[in-house]
Computed example of a mutant assay.
Amino acid sequence: MNPDKLPGRLSGINQRLLQQRQQRIPPLRDDKIITAWNGMMITAFAQAGDILGGFFMGQEETADCQQPREAFMKP
């Protein structure tokens, strides 16, 4: 194969691949990573409170902790 023709040929192949990919059902989103990051953030706040001796979280941090709890813990 001529190396000069390779970029044009790859472009055509990539376009056909994209067309096929757009026809299939997309996979579901994995929310476990988001949940893990929220848990890490809440743990860090709790550890900071222990180290700083009763560190008080402001309203912004408290709201950040409330949203995941409300989203994942149904009564």
Rank of each mutant, 00 (worst) to 15 (best):
I51T: 10
P3N: 02
G53A: 04
I25M: 13
D50N: 11
C65N: 08
Q19E: 13
I33V: 15
G12D: 03
Q67I: 14
P75T: 02
I42F: 01
N38A: 13
P75R: 01
K5Y: 04
K32T: 08
R9C: 04
L52G: 06
G49C: 03
L28Q: 13
I25N: 13
M41A: 11
Q59F: 06
I51M: 06
D50S: 10
P27F: 09
Q19G: 09
I13W: 05
L28C: 11
Q47C: 09
I25F: 14
L17F: 06
P26N: 03
L28K: 14
P3F: 00
R16V: 05
E70I: 06
C65K: 01
D31T: 08
G39Q: 06
Q20Y: 06
N38E: 12
Q59A: 14
L18T: 12
N2R: 10
C65I: 09
Q66E: 15
M73Q: 12
A63G: 08
F56D: 15
G39K: 01
T62F: 09
Q15M: 04
Q22D: 11
Q59I: 14
P7T: 00
I51W: 03
N38K: 10
R29E: 15
L10E: 01
M41Y: 10
G58F: 01
R9M: 08
G49M: 07
M57V: 09
F72C: 07
K74W: 08
R21E: 12
R24V: 07
T43N: 13
R69W: 12
G53C: 04
D64I: 10
Q47L: 15
P75W: 02
M41D: 07
E61I: 05
Q67T: 12
K5D: 14
Q66F: 07
G49K: 05
F55W: 10
D64V: 08
T62V: 14
I51N: 05
D30P: 01
Q47S: 11
Q23I: 02
Q66K: 14
G58H: 02
R24H: 12
M41E: 07
I33F: 13
E61S: 09
A46C: 09
I51S: 06
Q66T: 12
R9S: 04
A46I: 14
R9A: 06
P68R: 00
T43C: 12
K74F: 06
P27E: 12
G53N: 10
M57G: 05
D50W: 05
D30T: 03
M73A: 11
M73K: 06
R9W: 08
L17P: 01
Q59D: 15
P75G: 06
N2H: 04
G58A: 02
R16C: 04
I25R: 13
